[in-house]
Design a protein around this nucleic acid. Sequence first.
DNA 1: ATTCTGAACCAATCTTACAATGGTTGATGT
DNA 2: ACATCAACCATTGTAAGATTGGTTCAGAAT
Lengths: 244, 244
Amino acid sequence: MDDSATETALSKLRTYLAQIEMPLDSRLPPERELAETLGVTRAGLRKALSVLESENQIWRHVGKGTFIGSRPIDTLADVAAITRRTNPAEVMRTRMLLEPEVARMAALNATSAHIAEMHQCMQRTRAAQTWRQYEAWDNRLHRVIAESTQNSLLLALLDTLNAVRRAIVWGRLRVDKVKPAPNHHSFEDHEAIVAAIADRDLNRAAGAMRIHLENVERNLLRARPASEIMAADVRDLVSAAARA
Amino acid sequence: MDDSATETALSKLRTYLAQIEMPLDSRLPPERELAETLGVTRAGLRKALSVLESENQIWRHVGKGTFIGSRPIDTLADVAAITRRTNPAEVMRTRMLLEPEVARMAALNATSAHIAEMHQCMQRTRAAQTWRQYEAWDNRLHRVIAESTQNSLLLALLDTLNAVRRAIVWGRLRVDKVKPAPNHHSFEDHEAIVAAIADRDLNRAAGAMRIHLENVERNLLRARPASEIMAADVRDLVSAAARA
DNA sequence: ATTCTGAACCAATCTTACAATGGTTGATGT
DNA sequence: ACATCAACCATTGTAAGATTGGTTCAGAAT
């Protein structure tokens, strides 16, 4: 009898769904109400609903309701959530995939105003008196390069990527006591990239960005004195393990 | 007097900021409260705050408060907001940039379970009786390919990209009355991509994806009668392109 | 006259409490 | 043993009030 009962509830539900207009992703009535409408018990309705859910016809969520269509992917690019799931290797791999092409697009699409602001940012990073100021203008430089691609979608993706990158390296930055002296390596890399963009040299811009990323990765992998290891790398290991 | 008054407020504010602990991105007291604490007028305090804001030392926002550090980028990848700012050309350019490399990574990192689910998804798209079901399993196929890269950060970026893509073509989809028949072009493209991934042929996977995207773009640019546009191009855009 | 001051108001945001919803359990009856 | 019904739970949505940076304006101070 349970089979037949479930069947009748299921058939009634299918009839109901075929009957009504369903603009896709619209919400069905609450279970309690729908059960009364179809003249079935709530338990029976829920069995029928679970069948349709397994068929990818509907999706349900507590507190939200029951919806037509397939369950939407968690599209909220919550940086905190991503940061908990990812690791420096993934960030580096993704940057290697994206950023050289971004530099190429920037060289093609950047306006003179963009390039002027890039130079201004680099100058201000050199003039920075604290790590906080340096980091602020460094971030701004990255953002201007991304903006100069003139692709708002790509810009949004890069914003997310950079936010994750900053969140991950943050643990090291905050314990880093050295304040005023930025390393010269990043400066030269940045200048090469911006110069290539200013020259509208697409391949050189992409190449400079790739070289920069390779340098960054090399620094990450380079062995260090024990004191620094304890001060930085071990902290990374611990925090990475905590995320996993 | 105004200068000196602003100066005193500014100096008092700097002293205050240097005195307190500031864990970076922490919130300052409200302006009204801080003005009383420092013994300055709120207008004077606001002038001093605007100076510090121009120096990238703090950032403010209505309803939120005043915070230490540089203004954070709007990192919330709100799909609706992105959709309003972008357009199909940007989506295609970004997909061309990302997805061939994603296919390459998938060929390298996909597990046999991933590949099995890809085949299952393609089979279910063929067996789909409604466009809704077809679209659901088509989306799932895309997601499995992205998951098989084993890069959670890249996966999150692709989720955002795909959400934007679907949101953009959605308006056209809803007016498409044709329901059952998927076009064969997308099927062949998908099969080529999955076969290359299953063969662990990195270059062929990337190439198949690139060819697919080029087909999609060609269909988008091809002029047709309105009826055919609704019946065929929209399908190409949604299903075939999505499979790329 | 000009500028500063204080208060009020505005729009955006946060906070909080309450209602709604899918998911679950257990008693009751058949 | 199974269906039915009600109650409860955790999560989410909704609405109202409080908070906050931004703005305006009349009056005082210089």
